[in-house]
Nucleic acid binder design. Structure first.
Lengths: 262, 262
DNA sequence: CGGTTAGTTGAGAAAGCTCAACAGATGTGG
DNA sequence: CCACATCTGTTGAGCTTTCTCAACTAACCG
């Protein structure tokens, strides 16, 4: 359902090498192949991803930072906690979830990422990722090697500021999630979640009124701090109240204002 | 109880001007006076605040970015949501809480900051702060005008990286808070909170086993997503179980391992 | 020293969880 | 391409945790 067709050019670059410390992993875990990126300068998501006012020189430089993309199949990880941090990523097609895990097995989904949204910012701090990023469907990401990005940011004031803004935005996003988890009822959480998603889809030119949830009820619950049964009950309640028309994963928002009033 | 004596030199700099859009505020809200900072190069918190490997030239430049400090009295705000973002701050003495507020009055404390910790990172994103920063006791902060800091970071690779690390660290901190709010019981939350605080005090050379909570039970509850009564009950439970010896705001951790096992 | 605020404790209510049954959807091998 | 197994989602009933309301005590402040 999402934008651009995945870049599936098969000119695999040999440069890939070992992306990850390879821990126990369901299936064979090959060195992830990279593919040449189509350029930022012509990308339809540029307005979502990048500052609006880059000069053509800056765009050229940017193209030389974002040289490759990578395909991640549904259920596979882009990176996992404890992997060495190398690059920042931007979702190009598809969608991801990020999950932090406690030793005792407790899991918390900390976010869902759709095209144009960043991944990997958690890794800068310690040089090691602190969460897993898992594809919810077959997806593509742009790869921005962080060292090169940093160099670029020392040259470009605009790009420097953009990266600070991006990270600050992540901080603010997480704060409002804390508010959600700390102060809202199950009903309010789900409403806020749907409204947030609707807004993000709309900002990317998709319908905000009707969309397809790629994540399961369990994943939604794990994000919103409640059990899947409760998520399901709340969907049913919204349907009864004529706010949302859920059809499995297909969601139609009927009464936006009503949902906001919950 | 915290480190350094506050810099209370009264050579108020006239440069202060209007720091804030002044919304309804309990008392008189004057333009906050700034005081000359004692230098980063000689600050005992430097190891906590700044990258360890700055050259003497970089230290000099840093001193010229962090020219001023500001005193904030107990209960007063350093900045509030919707204030224009100007500067990043580092707590020098005392402590703060950051609070995000929903229109309907719901509040969530998103963090407590002790000496050496940053404040204001939320403002970069939109140029406007998204939370209130309120002093829990009479406190002092170092002021880092963000424009100057950005310039400095374009010149100093180390400083640039440090700021990225700082922001990434905030992202990781908030993720683990989401885990706390999303998956833990009231008992586990309070235990995790005490252990976190103990670690942070210890890292600053204070006792991790005995410390003074500057925040009320209500503020703790608002941070941990529970009511003050529940916080109180959990303290009592920890006391009964011989894990913690709470004496009002004075906390002594008796059984660190036990607390970690909760 | 009296008034106010902060903290503790108890009892009953409510939200959300657990367990369980079942229905649809999805996928797989014969 | 069907039949069966598996996974995902829905719904119900009873239980647990936390909240709410209330009373009371201790600490703090002017």
């Amino acid at each position: 359902m999402y934008a651009e067709p995945a870049c599936d050019s098969s000119l695999s670059t040999p440069s890939a090498g070992s992306w990850h410390v390879v821990p126990p992993q369901p299936a064979v875990r090959e060195a992830a192949p990279r593919y040449p990126a189509t350029r930022c300068s012509t990308c339809s998501l540029r307005a979502v991803c990048m500052p609006p006012d880059l000069t053509s020189t800056e765009l050229e430089q940017l193209d030389s930072v974002v040289l490759t993309t990578r395909n991640v199949h549904r259920g596979e990880t882009l990176f996992r906690a404890h992997d060495a941090f190398q690059s920042l990523y931007a979702v190009r097609t598809g969608s991801f979830k990020t999950v932090v895990m406690h030793r005792d097995g407790r899991e918390q989904v900390t976010g869902f990422q759709i095209p144009g949204e960043p991944l990997g910012l958690d890794g800068i701090c310690s040089g090691t990722h602190s969460c897993d990023a898992i594809a919810l469907e077959d997806s593509t990401v742009c790869i921005m090697p962080f060292g090169q990005l940093e160099s670029f940011c020392r040259e470009s004031r605009r790009m420097q500021h953009h990266l600070y803004q991006l990270m600050s935005g992540e901080i603010v996003r997480e704060s409002s999630l804390m508010m959600l988890l700390g102060t809202m009822t199950a009903e309010q959480r789900l409403a806020a979640f749907l409204l947030d998603l609707a807004g993000r889809f709309q900002a990317r030119g998709y319908s905000g009124a009707q969309f397809n949830l790629k994540m399961s009820r369990e994943e939604i619950g794990c994000f919103l701090g409640m059990k899947l049964e409760t998520v399901s009950r709340m969907f049913s309640r919204f349907q009864r109240e004529g706010l949302v028309e859920p059809n499995g994963k297909q969601i139609r928002i009927v009464d936006l204002e009503g949902l906001a009033r919950v």
